[in-house]
């Protein structure tokens, strides 16, 4: 058995070398504008992609449903170990076009609030812009501690399917991170 393992080890290493690179997490470039601010006792963030995802407006105009998944993570950065997660928030939004009435139904799946708009700009902003989005209460943060806020948005056509394996395929459309230290 050991002999077989020793013989198979080089082959296994070769396979790992070839396939392992695909399992490593993709390092996304900062393609998003991100501002973190304390508004009163609430940590808020404002985020928007540098540019709209390719074909987003066209898809909405052509009647395709578009969903976005925002993921906001607050972590304590550690040098020699994985960052310690403080908070992780997910926000799912969806736009359902109505070609007949030339309107777009905006659905905040997290809160359940819907709104119909008749301007495409409103629909795209709904999907791609977070404005002063409340993230954390100040009481959950420690003074003088350095934190990192990571924001990533993933966009797809149709409804968001929360399958675990979907994160394996296709990277995030936009992401950014910003550090701050609570005074």
């Amino acid at each position: 058995m050991l002999r077989f393992l020793f013989r198979a080890l080089p082959h296994f290493a070769l396979y790992v070398l070839f396939y392992g690179q695909f399992l490593l997490p993709a390092h996304a470039a900062a393609t998003m504008q991100l501002q973190v601010a304390m508004q009163g006792d609430v940590l808020t963030c404002s985020a928007s992609p540098v540019s709209l995802p390719d074909g987003l407006e066209r898809a909405l105009r052509d009647g395709s449903e578009i969903s976005v998944n925002w993921r906001i993570i607050v972590e304590i950065e550690r040098k020699y170990w994985l960052n310690k997660s403080v908070a992780s928030i997910e926000l799912n939004r969806r736009v359902i076009p109505d070609l007949v009435s030339r309107s777009w139904l905006l659905v905040d799946q997290t809160s359940g609030i819907t709104r119909r708009v008749f301007a495409l700009r409103e629909a795209t902003d709904f999907l791609t812009v977070l404005q002063h989005f409340p993230v954390l209460d100040r009481s959950l943060l420690s003074a003088g501690q350095a934190y990192v806020v990571k924001v990533a948005v993933r966009e797809r056509e149709g409804e968001v399917q929360d399958s675990w394996w979907r994160t394996w395929f296709g990277g995030e459309n936009s992401s950014a991170s910003s550090g701050f230290t609570l005074p």
């Binding site: 074909g55 066209r58 898809a59 052509d62 009647g63 070609l99 007949v100």
Partner: peptide, 17 residues
């Protein structure tokens, strides 16, 4: 009929894209 047209249009455009 209108919704069918819409759906077809949507499908067509989606396929086109």
């Amino acid at each position: 009929s209108a919704r069918a047209v819409e759906q077809d249009y949507r499908t067509y455009r989606e396929l086109e894209r």
